[in-house]
């Protein structure tokens, strides 16, 4: 694995290696001294063309816990706002000795283009490209789900296990969601079954060819007894009436309301009797896609997701950079 660009192209073994490594990293982050020397002397650049404080801080924390030097390059207030091309920016960063470039960009495919180009030798990590993919988000979701799934099934450790037999329901704006896309492919790779619930306007044309089951009704989707429910954030710009009439109507039909929470409370992780889990990639619109009670329910794993994000990103950076380091020293 030279880059992490998408989960669609992530092999089962690589996915499991990242998740297992992330478990080790998570153990480190629970120690008093939360730091490993693995990436000392190496430089990780966070190249962010979109504002995303959460994701950037998570990658920054991950790189620093591995002792890497971190450079944050934000498109705003930089030469990019003066019209510098992606190519020139990347070549500049490459000349400064970037070993890994973590790129967040509004344009789908920008991470793949960067990896395919000869602009830089750095390992490329896709931190979200347009409405295409956000692979580390899916990996942290999988890490979160796997812990509950393994524990419910009596495993001492989730290491080496996958999500075979799990049924995950993703609710909301599938059309514009890189999180939904990355989760679909990774969950399928790990053996889970994926369901979507959304209005037809927020499901992409061609979705019927995806390996997933679609529902227009959230109530029908919940009746299919998912093991996990993942709510997607409703973006403000979708609320203007173009995709659904009003936020209130969205909440009535596709929100995890208090009434629907009482349904989710009865759902279990397979036949284990352990409660099903609720995920949200954040930031939440309380009262729109998720009620306050649902957000604060003991079934939600939202803070675990954030903590697991750091562990997953540590694992990804560690695997990409320490591997390439070994290859170089062997050659």
């Amino acid at each position: 694995m030279r880059h992490l660009l998408s989960t669609a192209e992530l092999a089962y073994d690589d996915a499991l290696r990242i998740l297992d490594t992330a478990e080790e990293m998570a153990a480190v982050t629970s120690r008093e001294v939360k730091k490993l020397p693995t990436l000392r002397g190496r430089t990780v650049v966070n190249l962010f063309y979109e504002d995303s404080t959460r994701t950037r801080v998570s990658f920054e924390a991950a790189a620093k816990r591995l002792s890497a030097d971190v450079v944050n390059f934000s498109a705003k207030g930089s030469s990019v706002s003066k019209g510098e091309s992606l190519k020139d920016t990347v070549q500049t960063l490459d000349a400064m000795g970037a070993d890994a470039i973590v790129i967040r960009h509004s344009a789908a495919g920008s991470a793949a283009q960067l990896a395919a180009s000869d602009w830089s030798e750095a390992a490329v990590v896709n931190a979200g490209d347009g409405t295409h993919e956000h692979p580390t988000q899916a990996l942290l979701d999988a890490l979160t789900l796997r812990r509950d799934w393994a524990a419910a099934h009596g495993q001492d450790s989730p290491r080496g296990t996958d999500l075979a037999g799990m049924k995950v329901l993703i609710v909301g704006d599938i059309l514009h969601s890189r999180v939904a896309r990355s989760n679909l492919w990774l969950l399928r790779t790990l053996g889970a079954e994926v369901h979507f619930a959304a209005p037809a306007t927020l499901l992409p044309q061609g979705v019927e060819q995806w390996p997933a089951t679609g529902h227009y009704s959230l109530d029908d989707a919940l009746a299919a007894a998912p093991d996990a429910v993942m709510l997607l954030r409703v973006q403000a710009e979708r609320m203007g009436g173009a995709f659904f009439p009003t936020a209130a109507e969205y909440t009535r039909r596709w929100g995890l309301t208090d009434e629907r929470l009482s349904v989710v409370e009865k759902l279990t992780l397979g036949e284990t009797g352990k409660p099903a889990v609720i995920l949200h990639p954040g930031p939440m619109n309380r009262g729109v896609e998720i009620s306050a009670a649902a957000a604060d329910s003991p079934q939600t794993r939202i803070t675990e997701q954030v903590a697991n994000g750091v562990a997953v990103r540590m694992a990804v950076l560690h695997l990409l950079l320490s591997q390439s380091h070994q290859e170089e020293s062997h050659s």
Partner: peptide
């Protein structure tokens, strides 16, 4: 719109 709308655009996340 950036590319043909269909199963490929759905996966690539480009407006169809």
């Amino acid at each position: 719109a950036q590319m043909n709308e269909g199963s490929v655009s759905a996966t690539l996340g480009l407006p169809g």
